[in-house]
Design a protein around this nucleic acid. Sequence first.
RNA 1: GCCCCCAUCGUCUAGCCAGGUCUAGGACACAGGCCUUUCAAGCCUGCGACACGGGUUCAAAUCCCGUUGGGGGCACCA
Length: 505
Amino acid sequence: MTVRVRFAPSPTGEPHIGNVRTVVFNWLFARKMGGRFILRIEDTDRTRYQPESIPIIMEGLRWLGLDWDEGPGLEELRRSGVENAEAYGVGGPHGPYVQSERLERYREVAEELVERGWAYRCNCSPERLERVRRMQRARKLPVMYDRHCRDLPPGAVSPDEPHVIRLKVPLTGQTVVHDVIKGDVVYDNAGIDDQVLLKSDGFPTYHLAVVVDDHDMRITHIIRADHWIPSTPKHILMYEALGWDIPTYCHVPLVLGEDGKPLAKRHGATSVTQFRDQGYLPEALFNFLALLGWAPGEGEEQEIFGREELIERFDLFRVNRAPATFSYSKLDWMNGVYIRGLSQDDLLERLIPVWQRAGLVPDPCPEDMRATLRRVVPLVQERLKRLTDVVDLTEFFFSEIEPPSAVLLMQKGLDAGQSLEVLRRARYVLTQVEDFSEERVEGVLRGLVEEMGLKNRQVFGVIRVATTGKKVSPPLFGTLSILGRQRVLARLEAAEAVLGVSSKS
RNA sequence: GCCCCCAUCGUCUAGCCAGGUCUAGGACACAGGCCUUUCAAGCCUGCGACACGGGUUCAAAUCCCGUUGGGGGCACCA
């Protein structure tokens, strides 16, 4: 049987990265098994519904390379208000893949459950339900529906009046969740609530919809976050009532934030688009996510895995039972590894939009500027953890700098007079040097160090601060060469003025 | 309150299922050093964990029980 798994986001905002990690597991498992990865939109909560989040979710998946084999088709997406539906419409043989388009089907199944004696109509008011719950809490009893309508005579609640349909959970016996990661989890039926399946607005609850859709869409493995475990017995009861095959459950742990709490919006950068905007590479994030809660084992000590390698090695049944904490510092390291592994051309193409967003480079990027940027790339490549780091590191190439303060200019062991001397002589040799290639610049400046009997760090330090305005910069000779003679001489002169004034005073 | 899940360095993990090869291995982070024009990168070294208590066994990180700690669920939300 072909493996079929799904990601079923609710369009109420952007999924956070912990959720995305679970998607990565789904996708990896599907690809590993030669199966199908299905995208389904669970939009049954009309109060929290945000249609604009649908394309954002899809864009995030696509950016990470998580392509889906079946999912909402063109027309479905259009009806959901997705503007560039043609970019994302996929369709498939088991649609519709948007739950609000499947209302009739849920009603049909709910009615079937009623007919089979596995569900019943209930017209209890929200006020009464709340009263019951309050009482239960006060008496420290399990909080659940008191089954007031469960044994009403047939027809006591008219199908025409507003009502919900509830699952009629057996009062005795046990239901076992066979989970491939957690093992067998046993629940007493007596502790399972008579869950609402069909809401009074005609929409299904998650519990009905997920069972119907997973069955209709022939899902074989349900890989989802483990906070769903407690509601799984209800789902199993429904499969049994309907005579349907029960899928294989794989409840994977939640991803924790650095405070040990499950990852949520308040943890800062948590959506895929935010990671993208902060300069993370999709291949690095993907690699990192795959290793969050899973490891190849067998003594394997490699950490950097390409997509194909991960597909080949991924083993769903080895996923950790315990939750993992999302570590930004390790992600940063891994991202740096991937940046260093990029070809210079590739890195250039990824950096240009970053410079553009920072307002340092016009869009489109002029050809001559591109040529200059091409020279900057090797200077910064091994210094970047995130693409966005390039802004601070290279800003001085694009705009004029404020002449640095005397304090910043002076290096260890040099006073203002000596520093000034360094700048004057540097300006002299750089005026004389026949061209401004990195090699020539290096040659004359090293000669200057020799002549003055100073240390490399002293001479190069003063020049660095004078020309970049910072103590930390890319390698000096390449930097000067790119800046060009004119700008370098001007900046040296401006710095001399600063020191000249301060040495007189 | 009731139900459920989880537990190896600060973090991600290997080892656990098929007890001995584990004075517990790797990675990130951190500290120190080397290299060096700054910062990185790279290399070397260091720091650092089987939550606790019982039991089973010749032998337990590995199996069992309990405790503690953390987390999740208990909606006409997903």
